[in-house]
Simulated scan of single mutants.
Amino acid sequence: MKKRARGPEQKEARRRRILAGAEALFRDRSFAETTMAEVATRAGLSKGAVYLYFATKEQLFLALLVDELAGWFDVVDAGLAKGGRSEAVARLFATSLAERFMMTKLLALLDGVLERNIDEETALEWKRFFGARIERTGALLEARLPVLRPGGGAKVLLQINALVIGLRQMSDPAPVMTRLADQPELAIFQIDFERELTSALTALMRGLERPSLAS
């Protein structure tokens, strides 16, 4: 029989094992294909133990997204502090996002899946975290691109979020579409995530240099 974790350190260690198990499984599977039972097995715990830490699968994967986003925001904040013009900012965002497949895959599920089966406390904690990081990084973006008005940086980050969600969904098609990818007439639907994101972000940042678009 597996012993229940007692102290805070043991509980956090188990929580990290659960998150690591979920990440390992989700990397090569869809959300629907990843089960809590498999996560528990991967973490070396019982299924019941996993539910002591995460009430639903959505709550578990939302916690994984929070971890991923925290690391990404730290990288972007450090990059913005180094300076650079709009095209350098576009490359910073595009490169850092392309390097985080797990995070962008989870973002693509956020509104339609991950926020659908969580309690109000979890939802409020999540939105407070996300909002605070958006505002913090948005302020750094405003310092880097003075044409942005106060609050404009946060709006740009939300626009980038929308781009990421759309391009990740398009670049990670359903299995039937993957099997049809070699059809010449379907070539237009083959999306390279990093290339298209870089192009879109470069256009966005250049557009922000026009004051009428930066408010």
Rank of each mutant, 00 (worst) to 15 (best):
T202S: 09
L197Q: 05
P211V: 10
S212D: 13
G112I: 02
I191T: 13
I188L: 12
M103C: 12
E135D: 15
G207W: 04
S171Y: 02
F101K: 14
I118V: 15
G151I: 14
I160K: 10
E99W: 06
L106I: 01
A214F: 05
M205K: 09
S96A: 14
F129H: 02
G138M: 12
L140G: 10
M102H: 04
A214I: 03
N161D: 10
L109E: 05
K155A: 15
S199H: 11
L213R: 09
R149N: 03
E120F: 11
R100Q: 09
A139E: 03
L110N: 09
F129W: 06
E185K: 14
L106K: 03
P173E: 03
A174W: 01
R116C: 15
E194C: 07
N117F: 10
W126E: 13
L197D: 02
R144T: 13
L107D: 05
V147S: 10
E120W: 11
R206K: 13
L124V: 13
L114R: 07
A108C: 04
T122P: 00
P175A: 08
L157I: 12
Q159P: 05
R133Y: 04
A162W: 08
I134Q: 03
A181L: 00
G112Y: 02
L141K: 07
A187R: 05
E142D: 10
L141N: 01
V176D: 08
T104C: 08
L124R: 13
Q183I: 12
T202K: 09
P175L: 05
L201S: 01
M102K: 03
V176M: 10
L157C: 07
I160V: 15
R128L: 11
L167F: 07
T95A: 09
L141V: 10
I188M: 08
S96P: 03
G112S: 09
A143E: 13
A94Q: 02
I165S: 08
S215D: 00
F93V: 03
P173C: 02
S212K: 13
G151N: 12
L109G: 05
A132I: 05
E120G: 04
L208A: 11
E185S: 14
E196L: 12
D192V: 02
F130G: 01
L157F: 06
Q169L: 15
F130V: 06
A162V: 09
R133D: 04
W126Y: 14
R100P: 03
A187I: 00
E194P: 01
L163R: 04
K155L: 15
G138F: 06
L157M: 12
G207Y: 05
I188V: 12
T178V: 15
F193H: 01
E125Q: 12
A108M: 02
A162E: 06
A139C: 05
E185H: 13
D182C: 00
A214Q: 03
L107K: 01
A162H: 07
T122D: 04
